[in-house]
């Protein structure tokens, strides 16, 4: 019985971990290509989830239509946010930009609360069944969808950065903005694109989590969990972000297991990732996959 509970928790950990990984990737994308530490990443989940919820409940659109519409909205939102708020800050000290993203986070929280209230709202049932059976384990269909969607996004990211013209341009910009400009790349467009992709993909995670837990400000706490994931993986590594996400997802659930079975501390689930963060940073200050610059000898 306890071993099947453990297995269930591990599966949960992996599924939530891939989702953390996806959001962490979005965070890294912005950090790498624009050098902005985006403390409003969690609010992207929030805004995305509420937008989709509103389209489905108030506008009564079918989910399969509302979902892509949320995407389009978030893409535009990301671009506008970059152009209006962040573009004028290019060249300002890092700490100013950080203050602005923290400000944005608080601002979005407040606006969302004033529009949608403070109570969690359930997503209408999207799937006809409550749970599906995977190798004898009960898995919520939303989780399954989350896993599939996360994997698709990861493959899409890999393809985008390896083969597409804009993906290469984004990597070039991350490497050195002046070099990128000398190749004819518009750094402004790359920045806007990074924010657009990041907002869009985070929203997707927001919708998926919202479908499982209901839509509420707690979603932005999901975004905060992403920080340990990102830092464990190394701030500027996309692969590191995914692995960091998986580690955090697993850890949370293992901590819950240990807590429930033996320790009875109560809230290890929430704090464990942060303990691990501290320990990892003590051993590897640049994270597990942080920048190593090539040095020729």
């Amino acid at each position: 019985m306890t071993s099947s509970l453990l297995l269930q928790l591990i599966i949960n950990g992996l599924i939530v971990g891939t989702l953390y990984g996806v959001v962490a990737m979005c965070f890294v994308l912005i950090y790498k290509s624009t050098q902005v530490v985006n403390f409003a990443q969690g609010e992207f989940l929030l805004i995305g989830a509420w937008t989709c919820w509103w389209l489905v409940t108030s506008m009564e659109l079918p989910f399969w239509f509302a979902f892509p519409m949320t995407f389009v909205f978030m893409m535009v939102f990301g671009i506008v946010l970059q152009m209006v708020v962040l573009r004028p800050l290019i060249g300002e000290p890092v700490i100013s930009v950080i203050m602005v993203t923290i400000g944005l986070s608080i601002f979005f929280q407040a606006v969302i609360k004033s529009i949608f209230g403070v109570w969690a709202q359930p997503f209408p049932e999207i799937f006809p069944v409550k749970s599906v059976d995977v190798f004898g384990l009960a898995v919520q269909p939303a989780y399954l969808m989350s896993l599939v969607v996360s994997l698709v996004i990861m493959v899409a990211f890999a393809w985008f950065f390896k083969y597409s013209r804009m993906g290469l341009a984004m990597r070039a910009t991350a490497f050195n903005q002046q070099v990128a400009q000398s190749l004819g790349i518009s750094v402004k467009n790359v920045f806007a694109m990074a924010w657009a992709i990041s907002a869009m993909v985070s929203a997707l995670a927001g919708v998926v989590v919202g479908m499982v837990n209901g839509v509420s400000s707690a979603l932005s706490f999901f975004g905060i969990k992403v920080f340990p994931a990102v830092i464990v993986g190394g701030l500027d590594s996309i692969v590191g972000a995914i692995i960091g996400g998986l580690i955090i997802g697993l850890l949370e659930n293992l901590a819950e297991y240990a807590d429930g079975q033996f320790l009875h501390l109560g809230n290890l689930y929430t704090v464990a990732p942060f303990y691990v963060l501290v320990i990892i940073l003590m051993i590897k200050p640049y994270g597990l996959f942080g920048t190593k610059t090539i040095e020729r000898v």
Partner: peptide, 26 residues
């Protein structure tokens, strides 16, 4: 007009072919 900057400035964390493809960006 294309400038090859002083000190080469190739993109070190990309392959030769990726660097060349970026040259054709425009």
């Amino acid at each position: 007009i294309f400038q090859v900057m002083e000190g080469r400035r190739i993109i070190e964390d990309m392959t030769v072919t990726e660097n060349l493809r970026l040259g054709a960006f425009t």
